[in-house]
Computed example of a mutant assay.
Amino acid sequence: MQTDLIQEARRQAEICNACRYCEGYCSVFPSLHAERAFSDGDITQLANLCHNCRGCYYACQYTAPHAFDLNLPKALAEVRRDSWERFTWPQPLARRFHTHGGAIALALVVGFALLFWATRAIGSSGGEGFYAVLSHNAMVAIFAPAFLLPLFSIAFSLRRYWAEVNGKPIQMSDLTVALKRAGKMQDLAAGHGEGCNFEDEDRFSQARRHIHHAIMYGFLLCFASTSVATVMHYGFGLHAPYGFWSLPKLFGISGGVLLTLGCGAMALLKQKSDRDLGDPSAWGGDIGFILLLGFVGLSGLVLYALGSTPLMPALLAIHLGSVLTFFLLTPYTKMAHGFYRLAALVRDAQRKRDVSMVR
């Protein structure tokens, strides 16, 4: 199956390389046109460099019913998903969660059950706020492994990816260029800067780019909230609960709002898009992940709003259950794409640096 997907993507890439009409569209085409022949690693790199903006498809004169039958966004999307599944450890989990939204929903239910059980069985020996329901030490014991083990899995996967795409030792300049491109979501604006064609055929739109910004920065703010709270707790002896104007609360609430709105908008946007220009088999898994991530943000906001009511223990278990599920599934859902895309951008920065040195 892997060979068939890469062979089809290679066939299409060779035709695109001969045509070169889309040369300035995004990062994919300069990288594609730099080669004369494509190894499996080259195709994997192109696939992860592609942001599925679909501009090349609507500009192409060789799409169906032409005999060439080009659909490069779909071909690269299928290779991209297959690469995540091949590199991820353990593989069976990736193959399940990348394509089945129902599996994500089931995992969420299990996450809820575990946290409800923890609040009942472990409880708290005293404390304020949320710690009156589940002790701080119990939360650390549950969530530290749930955070660290997926990071190990992702690191292992990226090492496999880096070897396949013939990655070189990373210089700080490579990482800086990649982070700037990722922060601006530059490839979702395509080469012309007018946006992409994800949701409305040949009409350019910045909607997908802005929604990605909301989700990415919302997630980073939520992560910053937890990180700052950890430093305050262990570094300065300032323990939760924190007031509204504290950094953990300001980061957490603003991040939760962006995350909830961004995921809701993304789910609606995907309903408008043409599934045949992506990987149709992964559509259910994508929607399941988006809804899970949005639920993490929404449940956190509801918990904050109703945290002083008798509903707090149940809401805390629901929110923590969703966070636990999200952490554990990170290597096996669409969340992994952020790590692979950044790695692909770093590799592309290396390619550009090598070209400039030759010149």
Rank of each mutant, 00 (worst) to 15 (best):
G129D: 05
A189T: 01
V257Y: 01
N52H: 13
G218F: 02
C56V: 10
A305R: 06
A163K: 08
H100M: 14
I318W: 00
G321R: 00
G127R: 04
L247Q: 14
D274L: 02
R81H: 08
V79Y: 06
Q186L: 15
L93A: 09
Q171V: 12
D348S: 14
R95M: 04
A336W: 05
H98T: 05
T226C: 13
G193C: 15
A34S: 15
T99P: 10
G255V: 04
M1W: 15
R347C: 01
E199W: 06
Q12T: 02
A13S: 10
I15L: 14
R359M: 06
S246V: 14
D174Q: 09
Y58H: 10
A64Q: 14
I211N: 04
V302G: 04
L261W: 07
F326I: 05
Q91C: 08
P313A: 08
A229F: 06
F236T: 03
P313T: 03
M139Q: 13
H192Q: 09
A265T: 10
P313C: 12
F244R: 07
G294D: 12
Y304L: 04
F156E: 03
Q186R: 11
R96L: 04
A138W: 01
P150V: 03
S281N: 11
W245V: 07
K168E: 03
T99E: 07
D40A: 13
L261R: 03
S356M: 15
P280E: 03
A182M: 15
H100D: 10
V231K: 07
G127H: 11
G338L: 13
L108D: 01
P90G: 04
R209Q: 12
N48R: 06
G167F: 03
A267I: 14
P331V: 08
R181W: 04
N52V: 05
H66S: 12
T230F: 11
F339T: 12
M172K: 09
R36C: 05
L259W: 01
G55K: 12
L72R: 08
N52P: 08
R36W: 11
R347E: 00
W245M: 07
F236K: 14
E23T: 04
T63G: 13
R10T: 08
E194V: 04
K352S: 02
S153E: 06
V79D: 07
G41I: 03
L259F: 06
W283S: 11
A132D: 07
L76R: 04
R181F: 06
V231S: 11
S153V: 08
I154Q: 02
V133W: 00
S246M: 10
I290P: 02
L250A: 02
V323Y: 06
P145Q: 10
Q271K: 11
V140T: 07
G127A: 10
P30G: 02
H319K: 09
Q206V: 12
G338R: 00
M172V: 15
L148K: 01
